[in-house]
C-alpha cells in the first residue's frame, strides 16, 4: 500500500490511500488505480445514491459535481479525484433530511418514478441552474438531454427544473 499521495507510479495491483472530499467531508479510501470514482463513492464510501446505469458515459445516472460541474463519475478514476470538491446526491438535502428546492420540486412535479436516474438528474439540474439561472426552455431541454430516464418521459423532470428556475 502506498501512502496518501499520488506522485510516482501507482502500481496496478497496489491500493493507494486517497483522501476524497465528498459533500464537504474528508473520507479516506484505499483503491486500485482502476477503481472508478463511481465505484469508490458507492463501495468504498458507502454513498450508494450515485447509480450506475451504463458505465460508458451515456446515461448520466452516475453524475456527480466536481468543483461544481456535472461529471460522469463512471468515466473518472478515483485517483483523479484526490483534490477536488465532490458533491453527490447525499449532500443535497439538509442534515435533518429537509429536501432542497430541486428535490422538493421533483416531488411536486412527479419528476421521478423508479428513482434510479434521479440523483443524476438532480445534480445535473443543480449545476445547470447554478451556471445559468435564467436558462431558456430550449436550452434547458438540451442540457437535460445529457441524462437518460426510462420511466418519466422527461416532462416531469423538465417541469420540476423549470419551476425552480422560475421561483428564483
Amino acid at each position: 500500500m502506498t501512502e496518501s499521495s499520488i506522485t510516482g507510479l501507482l502500481e496496478s495491483d497496489c491500493k493507494t490511500r486517497l483522501r476524497l472530499s465528498v459533500n464537504g467531508t474528508e473520507r479516506t479510501v484505499e483503491v486500485e488505480p482502476r477503481r472508478t470514482l463511481a465505484d469508490a463513492l458507492r463501495d468504498d464510501c458507502g454513498l450508494t445514491g450515485t447509480h450506475l446505469g451504463c458505465e460508458h458515459g451515456v446515461c448520466g445516472a452516475c453524475t456527480v459535481l466536481i468543483d461544481g460541474n456535472p461529471v460522469r463519475s463512471c468515466l473518472m478514476f478515483a485517483v483523479q479525484a484526490a483534490d477536488v470538491d465532490i458533491r453527490t446526491v447525499e449532500g443535497m438535502a439538509s442534515p435533518d433530511g429537509t429536501l432542497n428546492p430541486l428535490q422538493e420540486s421533483f416531488m411536486r412535479h412527479h419528476g421521478l418514478q423508479c428513482g434510479f436516474c434521479t440523483p443524476g438528474f438532480l445534480l445535473l439540474s443543480e449545476a445547470v441552474l447554478a451556471a445559468r439561472p435564467d436558462i431558456d426552455d430550449a436550452e434547458l431541454r438540451e442540457a437535460l438531454s445529457s441524462n437518460l430516464c426510462r420511466c418519466t418521459g422527461y416532462q416531469g423532470i423538465i417541469d420540476a427544473v423549470r419551476a425552480v428556475r422560475d421561483a428564483v
Binding site: 454513498l47 443535497m92 434521479t118
Partner: peptide
C-alpha cells in the same frame, strides 16, 4: 397526492440491489 416513495429516492437513500 405526493408519492410516499419519493423522499428517500430523492435523498439518494433508495435501496437498489447493488446497494446491499
Amino acid at each position: 397526492l405526493r408519492r410516499v416513495e419519493d423522499p428517500a429516492l430523492l435523498r439518494g437513500q433508495g435501496r437498489f440491489v447493488d446497494d446491499f
